[in-house]
Amino acid sequence: MADAVIVVALLLVAASATVAVATRDPMRQALVLAVLGVVLAVLFTVLQAPDVGLSQLAVGSALTPLLLMLAVRKIRRRGREKEGER
């Protein structure tokens, strides 16, 4: 019965990873990725690996979204400038 929580965490990881791959728009993908990070941290915790879970939380909850969103923003602005020149 104690394995139930492991099964739940594994299913959540599989589902959110699939959604992250299936989402096309990078901004929405970043949102799914943030949720995936939290779910992965839960999986690591129930597998008794809190150190890895802590790494995942530290990187996945704020740092990865910030890097991704900054990159998306730069690319969009460049696109807008190109359009302005035309």
Binding site: M27, A30, L31, V38, A41, P50, G53, L57, S61, M69
Partner: peptide, 29 residues
């Protein structure tokens, strides 16, 4: 549930950085 008080650190980090992640989205979107 696991009787391990040190796992609370995970909750602490998530409570601190989770909202920061949402602020990132709120600002850049």
């Amino acid at each position: 549930a696991y009787g391990r008080p040190s796992y609370v650190d995970l909750g602490l980090v998530l409570a601190l950085l989770g909202p920061v992640g949402t602020l990132v989205f709120a600002r850049l979107l």
